[in-house]
């Protein structure tokens, strides 16, 4: 194996890890703060992918401006979708058994697949061109776009860390994660904290879809693939931990790369094997704290 080949695989792995991190951190922060497992989270990723496709391929054209517009639009649109979902669909269910939230978000996931088929059709949507050109490593050529995605995801990871460690609203979200009743009784607007957390998590997923689709294409059902993978990531890394999402995404991406090289037919199998091992050895995940059940 040449150095060039290793470098290309490393970039591929980091690209894949970046996307996984963005989806999984959104899912994880929503669960960590609100104890809601949003099964439609992957569908938000899919919506992000289609919005990015629409902006870059149908409206503006595959120029850097078109792609950036797609990213910004997906981020904003999915933040709004997330806020509305929490406010209208999920909030009425807080006092009800948590199975209802699962069923509701499951229904939303199925409905969104059909919505996407209705608007964009059932076929795969490929981006004909990537912005920012290619870079050659030996006789391989790697899209600069991948490096942009890796850099963006790193910056977002750092911003998330800063948000939860340094801002008052981020700390209030952590307080509400520990005990929302006490937080509210102390004067924190938990309604606002919850809707913001849900919007933030959803926006991260939409952004991930927007960044992934130029390489991985957009198709109905991609949300289901994404949600299952991001479950694996947060089970490995630990629920409700940003660092856990980073590490979980890296492990999952490395496991995938290894399989792609060794036995491509079982591309994602190793990820789930790792997940099973982590579940057996450390059920809270590598960086997870014990999650307290609450009603």
């Amino acid at each position: 194996m040449s150095i060039d080949y290793a470098l290309v695989q490393a970039i591929n792995t980091l690209f894949y890890a970046s996307i996984l991190f963005l989806i999984a951190s959104g899912l994880s922060l929503i669960y960590g703060i609100m104890r809601i497992l949003n099964l439609a989270h992957g569908s938000f990723y899919m919506l992000g992918a289609y919005i990015s496709y629409t902006a870059a391929m149908l409206w503006i054209g595959p120029t850097p401006a078109g792609f950036v517009a797609g990213f910004v639009l997906s981020l904003a649109f999915l933040a709004a979708v997330g806020a509305l979902t929490e406010r209208i669909l999920i909030r009425p269910l807080y006092s009800k058994p948590s199975e209802l939230q699962l069923l509701l978000t499951f229904a939303l996931m199925i409905a969104l697949d059909d919505v996407v088929k209705m608007i964009w059709g059932p076929e795969y949507k490929s981006f004909t061109k990537l912005p920012w050109g290619y870079m050659s490593i030996g006789h391989y050529s790697v899209p600069i776009y991948m490096l942009v995605v890796i850099a963006s995801s790193t910056i977002i990871g750092l911003l998330l860390w800063w948000f939860f460690a340094k801002t008052t609203i981020g700390k209030q979200m952590r307080a509400a994660a520990y005990n929302p009743e006490i937080a509210a009784a102390l004067g924190m607007n938990t309604d606002l904290l919850f809707v913001s957390a849900f919007a933030l998590g959803s926006a991260l997923s939409g952004f991930a879809g927007a960044m992934a689709s130029p390489i991985l294409t957009a198709y109905p059902g991609m949300g289901t693939d994404a949600i299952v993978l991001s479950f694996a990531v947060i089970v490995i890394g630990g629920m409700g931990s940003i660092l856990g999402s980073v590490v979980g995404a890296l492990i999952a991406a490395i496991a995938r790369t290894v399989m792609v090289i060794v036995y491509p037919l079982l591309e994602v199998a190793l990820i789930y094997i790792v997940m099973i091992i982590v579940l057996l050895v450390k059920p809270t995940g590598l960086f997870g704290k014990e999650i307290v059940e609450r009603r």
């Binding site: 008052t168 700390k171 209030q172 952590r174 307080a175 520990y178 005990n179 006490i182 937080a183 102390l186 004067g187 924190m188």
Partner: peptide, 17 residues
Amino acid sequence: MIFPDLTVEENLEVAYG
């Protein structure tokens, strides 16, 4: 019901807003 992963001053900060 102290918020366990916040410091003393952060516990005060979240309550103050």
